[in-house]
Amino acid sequence: MSGQNEDRQDQDKLAAAARRHAEEVSPKVAERLRAMRRVAASELEERPVKSVPGWLWPAGVAAAGVALTLALLLGEPDGYAPAPLLLADTDELAVVAELDVLEELEFLAWLEEEGPDDGEG
């Protein structure tokens, strides 16, 4: 218990000594710090407050509403056509479908030639 108290006292002494020392600067450095502080503080005073005027909010909301309405009303422009690539894709699909039909017809013809299944394997 006394060991903990000594530790505590040591830490307090250490902190007090460090705090005293942390405030020590030469007059030259102190002057430069003062100058820096003045520049920084004056910058805050010179900067305008970046707040949006009250009247601008309803105007902004109205403008956004008009833009949205126009976008919905106009929609897609007239004469809209799919891209040529899509047309080409459709043609290819049609050819494939025709091939399937042809294969099916060939299969049916072959089946007819083979005759009815007599069940003898």
Binding site: E23, E24, V29, A30, L33, R34, R37, R38, A40
Partner: peptide
């Protein structure tokens, strides 16, 4: 802001000086 900076500037300088070991860099 001026008052706040005046409160901390010396300790901040020493903190920086301990860290970088150079007065000009610390400033």
């Amino acid at each position: 802001m001026n008052t706040f900076l005046a409160e901390v500037e010396k300790r901040a300088f020493n903190m920086a000086r301990f860290g970088v070991r150079d007065t000009e860099d610390a400033l």
